Simulated assay, not measured.
Amino acid sequence: MKILVTGSTDGLGLAAAETLMAQGHAVVVHARNEDRAAGLAALTAQGAALVVGDLEDRDAVARIAAELNAAEPPEAVIHNAGVWSGRAVMPVNVIAPYLLTALLDGPRRHVYLSSGSHYSGHARLQGVDWTGTVAGSYGDSKLFLTAFVAALARVRPDLLAHAVDPGWVPTRMGGPDAPDDLDLGHRTQVWLATSDDPDALTSGGYWFHRARRAPHEAVHDTAFQDDLLRVLAAETGVALPAGQ
């Protein structure tokens, strides 16, 4: 299976890419820029394909999608890239995965990195700065992303969409004192992207260590989902393609 892992230069993304390659999958790794891409030399030397682009830049996201579509597109995407704070929160955590989902032709499985912080998010779309002119709320971004997963599962039943809380793990973003298990942090994403286990073939779930959990109550509010899809389509000028 060919699988794209965004934000795969370190942490959970790198661990997922390494595990997938060890399992024999064809992996596409992603780096924000050429300097970061140099850190993926060990994987590209083993045959991993590489795409480079800053997910904060919508044009770069579109270029990555076009590059992948021009080749044999991936069958699955682990939308791993994310930022904790600052102006890139909404562009990277919400806009980029939305655009990749809408623009990529091939993937039938999409796994999105959510967070337990989504429980602190606010289900309000009015006044959200999607461009990153001002700093965004991490909790809000993960709530929006988790609701997008539920919406995608509803409106695109031909796809498998999953949201995963990897735990608070000691990555560059999580910090060295994070209490959760780094090794367990990527395994649910890999399982959902590749497994034919009946549980992995469901869609719309919010997962923690291969167990489904109840998300924020707004996630399954279909009116909120519809508003979110409408806002994202209007903001980006890109609507989700109809299901097949």
Rank of each mutant, 00 (worst) to 15 (best):
L145A: 06
S137A: 07
T131V: 05
G185E: 02
V27W: 15
H220A: 13
A135P: 09
H209L: 11
A37V: 07
H30E: 08
G204W: 00
G106Y: 13
M90A: 12
K142T: 01
V155P: 06
V52L: 04
A239M: 12
T133K: 15
V134S: 12
G39V: 12
V155W: 02
V169G: 00
T146R: 01
S8C: 13
A161K: 08
S114K: 09
V51E: 14
D199M: 13
S195D: 05
H30Y: 10
V52W: 03
D181H: 09
D10M: 13
Q189K: 06
L159R: 06
V149K: 03
S114D: 06
H186G: 00
R109H: 06
G13E: 07
A37K: 05
G13P: 03
G121P: 00
R187E: 07
L229P: 04
P74E: 10
A211M: 10
V89C: 06
D158N: 03
E235M: 08
A48E: 11
D129W: 06
T101A: 08
R32N: 10
T202N: 04
T44V: 13
S117A: 14
A26V: 15
L182C: 06
A71T: 15
G167Y: 02
G185M: 07
V134Q: 08
D57H: 13
T101Y: 02
E56M: 15
G175V: 01
P91D: 06
H162T: 03
D57E: 11
V92Y: 01
F144S: 02
A135K: 14
D10C: 11
A65R: 00
A38E: 15
W207A: 01
V61E: 07
A38K: 15
R36C: 07
A96Q: 05
Y138Q: 05
D183P: 01
W191S: 00
D10P: 01
A96S: 05
V238R: 00
V111D: 04
A193M: 04
A163M: 03
L145H: 07
T188K: 05
A60Y: 12
L145Q: 03
L4T: 03
E72G: 09
D183C: 12
P215V: 04
L229N: 11
A233N: 02
M173A: 04
A239C: 09
T202K: 12
V28E: 10
H110L: 13
V5K: 01
P91L: 07
R172I: 13
D158V: 08
L12H: 13
G13T: 12
N69R: 03
K142H: 11
H110G: 05
P97I: 05
V169N: 06
L125Q: 05
H220Q: 12
R230P: 01
H79Y: 07
Y206E: 03
S137P: 04
A15N: 10
R63P: 00
R58Q: 11
A239Y: 12
P179F: 04
L103I: 05
L184M: 14
S195M: 01
V111L: 09
T44D: 11
L184E: 02
G86I: 05
V155F: 06
F208Q: 11
L40D: 11
I95P: 07
